[in-house]
Design a protein around this nucleic acid. Structure first.
Lengths: 349, 349
DNA sequence: ATGAAAGCGCTAACAG
DNA sequence: CTGTTAGCGCTTTCAT
């Protein structure tokens, strides 16, 4: 910029002013303005990012923290974010926590250090009763100069911004859906996770049962304490459940990956899905795979987009940060696509 | 830092010197050094990122450019990178190009602007004969102050650093493997893409045929001009190939996603995999899915790790940039897991 | 062993 | 309308 100014015989101020579009306010002659603009273009001038950030305290970078990016849920949410962030001239800085709270904390620190303007985060939920809770999210909750929007789940406090799907309603609808399909003994299978989303799904499930005059039984409830869905824990629990006398004729499984595994196990027990038992879960099937499950379709892309839009609002209008925004998107119930067809994993070159 | 210095009654210089560990060289008393260090720790002092970057011209951030992150290939390569970058105190800035060259160019520009120390990139390959080639990678190839390591494929020039698998060898082995399984007419199915990787696979395939005294036929060759593997193009081509007189009894498919789709189509034509026809491809099956294909197992995590390690070397030892590093990793051939078992998509909550 | 001073590239009062 | 000036927070050379 100095060079530019020298070359034009102007002061740095003038150039700076013009370049940030304040020419009007300072009544700078349109001729000099044009000269500056043209010269800048010709020299492919771009302000130095660090110098600018140093004085402006603004970077145009959004910090994204996700458990991973390969699950369809995550990558579709990210797509939604990209859709709004890119046109708005923001850049994403993406970190994955790999279900590791340490790493998550580290990443958050890194992003803060690197001066992101705001955060979009899907955090790791601990197993219920685990000692370390959400302490590492404190830096996010306390930082008033940098807004955070939580996605899919939020820390216990409501003093934060978040965008989630209506987990309660989804589970409620799914459970009633199962009942309408003729199920009388509807079991519950879930990771035993301390997340607002899972908790809401449980409440929705229970409300659904109540509404149809059904009851839940301890025997037909499975709470898993491991994320490895191929673990023997799950298999044993499912077998036990299906061998018992009051065997369920329907299952509500809180998450998609788990549900697929449950399907397998059900079949391994000699039962046939959609005949002996119905299964409902969150998250829809990929196009190449009809699972035969009743699905609560998550508005993933939309959630990402809404979260990103909210965040940019909060960044650009600091006053709005005072009021906590809670955005809850209603999911849609998708009946099992019959007949159940097993395709192959597609689109993964 | 100013506060720190004031509080300790020292000059900023001293503090700065101590903090960067140069206390020894400047013979600063160990007592003052300790005082400074302790105070710094107590005040949770961290140098300002932008001020530092402004003077140092170094950020500790690595720019990562990938077509996407949801394909298993991509996410595993990234895992390998994380494995070496995190312990080495680097942070990743990840951008996806979504198979869009515009976006790819934009992302590269953004990352340069944001002052990354180096690049790790899997770029988009155009279809063969498409006008816009690798021009947008120029900024990477020309930038001597910021090394780039290409992964999985490299621009036509060899004047660059790259880490790839031995595509030629993999394809060669796979083709010979098919022949050893009894195939006499081995067809070739591929995206018609202008990538070094795909080209090497084709050459490997041809060499494999030659070595076994087999010949390729135009009729048993399918070159696709769309990335949408559910397209009717592929279905039609496969049908045509399988209906003809010299129907292939083996197929080498260059990429994994495509191969799965081909399996489906083969079955849709009334043929049975592993009986009427054998299929070989790159990329191994996920644990929950035995495809029945002969697989060239890609060393994905290792590729990511090697690339990252190479890049940090290049960053930290500028002199090494003068010699172009080409790292080629040998893949392993994995026979079809029998019997072919169709599982369900797991691990995707 | 420690401090003063210049500068990285840009912004923003304020004075002409 | 344009120029002067004082930072932003840190590094580094050069005196002391």
């Amino acid at each position: 910029m100095k060079d530019l100014a020298a070359q034009l015989g102007l002061s740095r101020t003038t150039v700076s002013l013009v370049l940030k579009g304040a020419a009007g306010r300072y009544r700078i002659s349109s001729t000099t303005r044009d000269r500056v603009l043209r010269a800048a273009r010709r020299a492919r001038y771009r302000p130095n990012y660090f110098a600018r950030a140093l004085t402006m305290r603004r970077t145009g970078v959004i910090g994204i923290v996700f458990p991973n990016v390969f699950e369809t849920f995550m990558s579709e949410v990210i797509k939604g974010m990209e859709d709004v962030l890119y046109p708005a001239e923001y850049t994403m800085m993406l970190c994955t926590s790999r279900f590791d709270r340490e790493l998550e904390a580290r990443n958050i620190e890194q992003l803060r250090y690197r001066g992101v303007d705001g955060f979009l985060v899907v955090f790791n939920a601990p197993f219920r009763g685990e000692p370390y809770g959400y302490g590492h999210l404190r830096p996010l909750l306390n930082d008033t100069s940098r807004p955070t929007v939580f996605v899919d789940r939020y820390p216990r406090t409501k003093r934060c911004h978040y965008v989630v799907q209506d987990d309660y309603r989804g589970a409620y609808d799914a459970t009633r859906g199962l009942a309408r399909m003729g199920c009388r003994r509807i079991g519950y299978v879930s990771l035993d996770i301390d997340a607002t989303s899972v908790e809401a799904r449980r409440r929705g499930y229970e409300a659904g049962l109540r509404e149809r005059g059904l009851r839940k039984s301890t025997q037909n409830t499975v709470l898993l304490r491991t994320r490895d869905s191929t673990s023997e824990d799950l298999a044993a629990a499912i077998r036990r459940m299906l061998d018992g006398p009051g065997r369920p004729d329907g299952l509500f499984v809180t998450t998609n990956g788990l549900a697929h595994r449950v399907c397998e196990l059900v079949e391994a027990c000699g039962l046939t899905l959609n005949r002996d038992i119905q299964i409902a879960t969150f998250g829809s099937d990929p196009p190449w795979f009809a699972s035969g499950m009743l699905c609560v379709e998550q508005p993933r892309v939309e959630m990402g987009a809404r979260a990103a839009r909210l965040l940019t609002q909060l960044i650009e209008h600091p006053r709005r940060r005072r009021v906590w925004k809670h955005c809850v998107i209603r999911p849609r119930l998708v009946p099992p696509s019959a007949p159940a067809r097993h395709g192959r994993p597609g689109g993964r070159p």
